[in-house]
Simulated scan of single mutants.
Amino acid sequence: MKYHGFVLALSAIVAAATPTGPSADATCTVTNFDDVANAVSSCTDLVIQDLTVPAGKALQLDLKSGTKLTFKGTIKFDFLNWEGPLLVISGSSVTVEGSGATLNGQGEKYWDGKGGSGTTKPVFVKIKTKANSVLNNVNLLNCPERCVSINADDTNLNGWNIDVSAGDTQGGHNTDGFDVSNTNNLHIDHATVQNQDDCVAVNQGTNMVFSNLDCSGGHGLSISVGLSSSNGSPNTVSNITFTDSKVRKSANGLHIKTHPTGGTGAVKDVTYNNIVISDITNYGIEIQEDYGDVGNPKANIPITNLILKQYTGTVSGSKAKQVSIVCASGGCSNWNWDGVSISGAKVKDDCNFQPNGYKCNT
């Protein structure tokens, strides 16, 4: 009897010490928006499934270090004209799995053909991760405006699919695929983007690779530099590689643009390698140091060590050009191009700077 009583007492102590709610080791499946905050603060194996996010609310996922997050089913974001973002993912050493889910921004309820200059539209997804975080196989449908804003370090995105193709006929505009700022050590691989603006736009940061991209309907593989950073420091992009990618049915193949009325900074050590373009309506290659003040280029953002290797394909349309280059005096240097071959232009190139290895057809 004494032994039996001891066992019962010990069992009671163990039971009392065992948590009954979500724990750091629990798998938590959330289907109700009101349960998100508690699960995010408690769980390191989190499932967001068939969830509707109320209008004007953000799905704020400030994940614990090392968390695995899985999306399942359909995650829908209800309509309201506000700035957003609709979804924020942040954390250190986190893993995100799309797992065949669809994140639906219901952009068709926002589109007015005016993008950022029309009614207020939210950014869809903001990523603020670090320390070897990985985000795999995420499917975004119908971004209201900009799709993914990245401000991250040591982060990999693999297998993303961004589908804003409905915006082609329903008024989608400024639906950038990936906008990247204040980011270091980023790799985006095997992504598909169908949209109405830049497939990728790098605004600030270093050490990035964009590989195996399939871009269509937008403005191509872009770098946009010159607007002052939030802390007033130079706005610099360096050591960026675009490789093994396709740009189809788009306005531009690649577009590098610096803002003469913005701050200081640099674009340097940028490589485009094995890029195939097709059905490009404006420019196979467009590089300008007069973006926002056309005809008045400035060298406040010099473009140096620009490498193109095996950049091939076609442009189409009565006004399409193979290459357009507008550099300020002293603003461009050490450009080395090899294997650049673009056909189909009915208008001659427009170049005031000649890269090594390419002769502009002027």
Rank of each mutant, 00 (worst) to 15 (best):
L63C: 03
N38F: 11
V47N: 02
F71I: 13
S11P: 02
S41I: 09
N161D: 06
K321R: 15
D214G: 08
F6L: 11
P260D: 02
N212R: 14
Q49F: 00
G357F: 09
Y272F: 15
G262H: 14
I303E: 10
A299S: 10
G331C: 13
D153L: 02
C327E: 10
G73F: 04
D290F: 08
K64R: 15
Y283T: 03
A39P: 05
S92R: 07
N38T: 15
G105I: 02
Y3V: 10
G167Y: 04
S181G: 02
L103K: 13
N334E: 10
C215W: 13
V7N: 12
G56T: 07
L63P: 06
L103G: 14
A17G: 00
H255N: 11
V53Q: 02
V347Q: 14
S329A: 15
V164T: 08
V326W: 05
T261E: 13
V200K: 03
L46C: 09
T74I: 02
E83M: 09
H173F: 05
V88L: 03
N352V: 06
D34E: 15
G167W: 05
V30I: 15
I13L: 14
T236I: 09
N252F: 02
N334M: 09
G292A: 05
L80S: 05
L69Q: 07
T264M: 04
N158D: 01
V30L: 08
N274D: 14
Y3I: 00
S99L: 06
V134N: 10
D25F: 13
N207W: 13
T67D: 07
S343F: 07
S245G: 02
V193R: 00
L186G: 01
G253T: 00
N151A: 13
Q322C: 11
K319Q: 15
D176W: 06
D78C: 02
F124N: 00
T258L: 03
S278E: 05
L308V: 04
Q310N: 14
G226N: 04
V125I: 15
G118M: 08
G295Q: 12
E145P: 07
I275E: 06
A12I: 11
A15Y: 07
E97R: 07
W111F: 06
F33V: 11
